[in-house]
Amino acid sequence: MNDLVLHLDNIQKNFGGLSALSDVNLQVEEGTTHAIIGPNGAGKSTLLNVCIGRLKPDAGHVTFYGEELTGRKPHEIAQMGVARVFQTPEIFPEMSLLENVMLPAFSKRDGAFSMNAHKLLSRQGDIRDEAEHILEDVGLQEQMMTEAGSLSRGDKRRLELGMCLILKPRLLLLDEPTAGMSRHDTNSTIDLLKKIKSRGMTKVIIEHDMHVVFSLADKVSVLARGQIIAGGTPEEVREDPKVKEAYLGGAH
């Protein structure tokens, strides 16, 4: 079972009386792009929060390459190789784009805490080169020295994607990476994500834009009211009557 990157086993999460996730099972295989779709409030972001240790599930387990993630601290999970692009971009608004991309590399290198003064105090030529390279990948190299807070919403997402890519994660979780982007930017993001995929990075992507889902996903799971109601290849899911109902009707 080595090729199973992420495994959610009967995850349950309640907020007060609201059952945000109930009996969610999900398996993500190595090298694949797994899309999660579903109407607003279905529990998609909650599912990612459980994976990265922001929320503890009330029941069930999350494993990553066979290792238990439930109960671990967020920074430990990140150190294991799980990175996430958030639904509202989490960046460093007062810093330059370059610093924004360099910082995660430092977190990755020294995150577990080291008191190696030489390393901690020296100038970092190699990490800077790498960051510039990443900024080129996400198409922001020209604005390298601008303040991140002044970017458009779409550019902030691309920056955050770059901040995750420099971590070279083994699993990348993306929460609506193209929301707020123009058609043109969406397409270039799709190209970028395809390129990442060809390098073999495993991804879970939450997306409302079906065009994005169909261009990228190998597998799709449909989440509605906290439950996975359908799953399979994009074509299978598109034809599933339950999915149409969840998106169109909905009132039970």
């Binding site: 601290k73 990175a83 007062e94 977190s107 805490f113 971590l167």
Partner: peptide, 12 residues
């Protein structure tokens, strides 16, 4: 600037 971001990129 953003403690969450630091945490979720692996900083203790």
């Amino acid at each position: 600037s953003n403690q969450n971001r630091m945490m979720y990129t692996g900083l203790n």
